[in-house]
Amino acid sequence: MIRESYLNALVLFLLLAVPVWATIIDEPFTITLATRAVIFALAAVGLNIALGLGGLVSLGHAVFFGIGGYAMGILAHHAQTYTPVMSLPFLIEGTKSMPVIWLVAMASSGLAAFAIGTLSLRTTGVYFIMITLAFGQMFYFFTISWPTYGGEDGLSVYVRNEFPGLNTLVPIHFFAICFIILCLVLLLNALIAKSPFGLALNAARQMPKRVQAVGLNPNRLKLLAFVISGVIAGLAGALFADLNRFVSPTMFSWQMSGEIMVFVILGGVGRLCGPVVGAVVFVMLEHFLGGLSEYWHVYLGALLLIVVLFARGGLVGLIVGRVDAHD
């Protein structure tokens, strides 16, 4: 049994060491895989704030992932075709600058999370799960039937967006950007969990009535957690779109929501690095099992069943050996 903080350090160290090693031996594909894992981990860390801390089982986080992706896609599309995003009532130009795109992605997914959260939090339990799922479908079908930005075919961006001082076309540079963002968000997550807000949120998850009795509004706490969670997922979406240089309605699909949730559960709900472990294991399975068999989802499904039925607390829980993450 090792302590969870050592495990976290080890996970992040390995996640950094593998691409660095791949750069040295010149294996760009491995770096791309690692970047994919880091971006998925980022989205999952976002979900974990709503799910692990707030107890909000959102099966619609692909909405925010997709909005982030489309924020990047739309801005970069207008920049590469030299057309304005809108000219009335005031002029907005497209851009290829990553920081600007991130801000737009985070702001728009945050707004969406606020709207969806306000509506969905009127309900609890199964209703909440189904409503978030339905909102996801709503965005999915909207992007499919809206032809301006490619409809079902999606949007391609020919050159990766720019970040001042780095050449994002070099795989390890782009990896570094994603990795640093992941570390910052993990730090934020740890700070939130220890902050008065995090403690109140934790209490609101376990016993909303008592939280109300001490004068806090549990739903407002949960809404804030949902918005923070959506903002992070949106940022991950923008990075994911930049990794693939392509956005499509698939980013909004309910399978995407399911997969983000799988990362969290596979790794361990409510654990700081649970989502990171989950995403890394998922990408590795996808790569290695996908190479062995076209039907690797069968094995993924079986593994998931085993984790849910027998290994509560996910992989991190299995290694660290404490079943309860919240104590």
Partner: peptide, 22 residues
């Protein structure tokens, strides 16, 4: 809790869909 049910039945979907595809 519902979270486990969602995950386990999501796993079943993966198994059934890919099994049928196979």
């Amino acid at each position: 809790d519902h979270l486990d049910q969602v995950l386990a039945t999501f796993a079943l979907i993966l198994i059934f869909s890919e099994g049928t595809r196979w």
